[in-house]
Each structure stands twice: as structure tokens, then as C-alpha cells.
Computed example of a mutant assay.
Amino acid sequence: MTGVHGSGLDARRIRFGHGDRLIIDGMHLTAPGGAVTALLGPNGSGKSTLLRLIAGTLRGEADALELDGGSLTAMRRRERAQRVALVEQEWSAAEGMTGRDIVGLGLLPHRGWLSFEGEEADAVATHAALTRAGAFEFAERDAATLSGGERQRVNLARALAQRPTLLLCDEPTNHLDIRAQLDALVLLRSLARDGMTVIAALHDLNHAAAFADRVVVVADGHVQAAGSPQNVLTRELIARVWRVDAEVLTRPGSDRPLIVFDTEHAVAR
């Protein structure tokens, strides 16, 4: 896959409701191949729901859901799992499963549940995924004993073992310390440079400003703005969407924005 960039994701008019509430109301999301797209928005804006709809773990409606020109909704479940990997914030493991066992689950869409062919190749792929995600030291640990940050890295390794074209990450820096957060974001950028389409839901606007090629801001069931961090993350948009005042500076040594929040006052709701 290295150096080969697909056209990416094109999701048109996605809709999803729960009861009488319409959570996602006709969103149109594009994410180019070979780039990191940061999905931003306040709590409850539908970021996690949107990722699950794209991954197919949640059912909704869409006029089109295409990856590299092919329809995801027309794919069989196994084929879709070979193309799309979702890293969720929280997950549970069966009793007695090790970190290596969890990562091995990422191979199932390619090998099947009962396949014993290619065990050596599977072991190599699992080792590579654990190493690249910085999770090799957790390979033989009982998954139930892992901390939140350790589980996050193992889950990312599981997604890498899946060898997806599209990687969806829901708060990939959640539970991680500062060094591990930066390592995770550098990894996502590296995967994108290798040709993967990467979409990451993030809370930290400065992480998005520093690492994303494109940002999509969602709120109230709609896309509020989309484009480069430099063009989208303005003081006016931050005040309107997050109800906080901020000064948007330029990060030293680059043209990317650096957001400094007013810790004394918030914009009146």
C-alpha cells in the first residue's frame, strides 16, 4: 500500500435517529485517501455515531457511502471488514485473552474463524502490528489487567492487523499520557502517508490543528465547516460551535494554527 493513495471516503446525506431525536441529519463527509481527517465537535454532536455508521456496526441511512469509488453498503460484511477498521474508545475482552489474542482478531476477516493456514504469516503480522502500535510489551498480558491507555494501544494494533484501507479512530488519544498521545498521532499521520484513509474523532483542537490534513466540524446533526485546519479553525467558528472564546495564533515553525483558550470567560450560552 505504501505510496498508493486511493480516492478516499465519500459519504453523502447520512441520517440516523434515536427515538424522536435526529442525531445525524443528512451529513456529507469526505475524507481524502493518504490523509488524516480530524472529526471535531462538542459532546453529543454525533462523532462516534458517524464513525460507527461508516464502519457498519450501526445501521442508518445514506444516499451513498463509497470508499475509493466502491460502495461500502453493497459489500458483504466480511469484505467490508477487510477494508474498514474501527478503533472505539472502549472495548471488552473475553476472560483469559492476552494482548496478542486481541490483535489476532484483526486477522479474522482475512483468515476466517477456523482457518489454520498461514500461522507463521499470521504471527508475523500480529508481531508487526503490536510493534508499530507501541503495544508489544502487552502481548502476553491478560487483557483484563491492562490500563485504559494500554488497552487503547492494543486496540489500535488490532486494527492495524486488519490491514484496512480506511481506519476510523474514536478518540485515539483517550487514556494516553502526553508522550503516548503524540506517538499515536504521529502513527496515524504515518499510516496516511503510506496511503491509508484515516478519520479520527478528536476532542483536542490543537491536536487536530497540528496533525490533521483536513478537519470536519460537526454539531446539531450537520457539518458546520470542512477544510484545512488553517481555514476552518477560526476564532469565530470556535465561539459558535464550542461556546468558548479563543485566540488563534500561528504555531512556531509552521503555518498551522495554535489555539489559546480564554480560561477566565466562556461565551454565554
Rank of each mutant, 00 (worst) to 15 (best):
A125I: 02
A129D: 04
L146Q: 07
L156T: 07
A184T: 15
V241Q: 13
S254E: 09
T197W: 00
F136R: 06
V223G: 02
G3M: 12
H110R: 14
F261S: 01
L160R: 02
P257N: 05
A210Y: 14
A11H: 02
R193W: 12
A212F: 00
T165F: 00
H207R: 09
A180W: 02
A74L: 13
A210M: 12
L167E: 04
D194R: 10
G221S: 09
L86Q: 01
T30V: 01
H18M: 10
G6A: 13
S92G: 10
V198N: 05
R21W: 03
V215P: 03
A144L: 15
D213G: 04
E264H: 11
E247I: 05
L53A: 09
A139D: 00
L156Q: 14
V248S: 13
G6F: 03
A135S: 08
M75D: 06
A161E: 00
L191W: 01
I199H: 02
V267A: 06
G19Y: 06
Q224V: 12
R256L: 05
A31S: 11
R256K: 11
V244D: 07
E137T: 11
G118A: 10
L39V: 10
T263K: 12
V215D: 07
G70T: 10
A128I: 00
T250Q: 08
G19I: 06
R151N: 01
A129H: 10
L187H: 06
A93S: 13
G34E: 10
S92A: 14
A135P: 03
A38N: 10
F138Y: 08
A31W: 00
V124P: 02
S147N: 07
F136E: 01
H28P: 05
R153F: 04
D245H: 08
H28R: 06
E137F: 11
G69E: 04
V215Q: 02
L156K: 13
R158C: 06
I54D: 01
R21M: 09
E119F: 07
G44A: 13
A144P: 06
L249H: 07
A157H: 07
S147G: 04
P32R: 04
A180S: 15
